[in-house]
Computed example of a mutant assay.
Amino acid sequence: MQAFCYTLCLRMHPLEALKQNPFVLAPMAGITDHAFRTFMKKRGAGVVVTELVSATGIEYKSERTLKLMSFDPTQRPVGIQLFGEDPEILAKGAQVAEEMGCDFVDLNFGCPVPKVVKKGAGSGMLRDLPLMEKVLASVVKAVKIPVTIKIRTGWDANSLNAHEVCNIAYNEGITWVAIHGRTRAQAYSGLADWEHIAEIKAKARLPILGNGDILTPKQAVKRMQESGCDGVLIGRGCLKNPHIFMDALSLWRGEEPSQEFARDYLGLFLDLREAIVAHCDEHITGIQLRKFAAWFSTGYPGASQFRKNLFQTKSHDELMDLAMEFFKSIGTIEQEDTSHEEFLMGGHG
């Protein structure tokens, strides 16, 4: 595993990390928590980012919000992703993130969720670029660490303004722009527009990361090569194949995927359980284990019935017995490619 982990406690600039490993764990609400980031970092993710954190929650010192920001040194380089609409509050939130020791702050201008957008935050700010400019200036001035942003291609098909956003970001000293290849109006429907991402990358004066519909290692490398992006964000793809980062990195380096790590989903699930138990209470542990067991089962015989039974379990022991029985039964059978099917559409910007 250590071949895929950077030296513990080493503070690495995120751009330097991208040069070594351009495959980034995309921030996903309710998924990329402390436990999952540690789990995926061990499995080859080059850079990891927290789930969405409210700058207003930080301002009010919400215990739940501050917990979302926790990380450990094994996750470096790690970014804390903030959302909000007030430049001053976002700047203060970024300062708190910096004080906690993260490697960079990521600002979310991509979240399409109505309760976020109606306040002008998330992808809502794509409709108010003067305000976005103020936010970027305020946050960059407030911290010494790098600031990155995540956006969509625009609010809708008639207002594709990602290139304009990239120009603003460059002028304000933003380190990179990650672009989800859908508009806010699309939410998670249709397909990510990688041709548009490539067009923006070709014109951009700062590093660009692409995001959207990367479900296999080959897709990750292909998107890197065809778009010219400096990195790609992988979200849903790692939920059914936690090996996607290490395999993509091997392919990107011109190597065959490593056989050092057996495709042992029972071992993977037990490792993840250990990480979740260490950071979550009993109730959240049950929720997370059911979700991840369901996702890990995708593409294997009997997965549909397994998922149905899984969400009917009443206790932790019953859940674990069922999961262990299923993952033992599949052994090291090759996972079926289900990239043509809808899978977990939602959860991130």
Rank of each mutant, 00 (worst) to 15 (best):
N161E: 10
I276D: 03
F83Q: 01
D271I: 01
P242F: 09
G235A: 03
P242N: 02
E282A: 12
L268V: 13
L15I: 08
G30S: 06
Q225P: 03
L251K: 07
A294P: 02
E199L: 10
C238W: 08
G79Y: 02
E63I: 14
S250E: 13
K218L: 13
L251M: 06
K19C: 15
P217Y: 01
L82I: 05
V116E: 07
H316T: 15
H243R: 13
A26F: 03
T56D: 14
M69K: 03
L215E: 13
H348G: 13
R64W: 12
I276M: 05
K115F: 06
P112V: 00
G124Q: 07
K291A: 06
G254L: 09
I287Y: 12
E336Y: 14
V116I: 14
K19M: 14
K42Y: 15
M69Q: 05
I330C: 00
E88V: 11
M1L: 15
R205W: 05
A275V: 14
K328H: 13
C280L: 13
V143R: 04
R205D: 13
F71M: 06
Q81W: 02
Y60M: 08
I174L: 02
K115P: 08
A35T: 00
E255S: 06
L25S: 04
T285L: 12
R11N: 15
N108G: 10
F327K: 00
P77E: 04
G124I: 08
I80Q: 11
M69Y: 04
G181Y: 05
T313C: 15
E226I: 02
F39S: 01
D337P: 09
R152E: 13
D230R: 04
L90H: 01
Q259K: 13
Y60R: 10
L310P: 02
A275C: 12
V140S: 09
H243N: 11
A91R: 00
V165D: 03
G30V: 03
A204W: 07
H180P: 01
G349M: 04
V147D: 03
Q335H: 12
K201M: 03
K222G: 12
I89F: 07
A94R: 00
W194T: 00
L191P: 02
M12H: 09
E274L: 08
F269L: 13
Y60K: 08
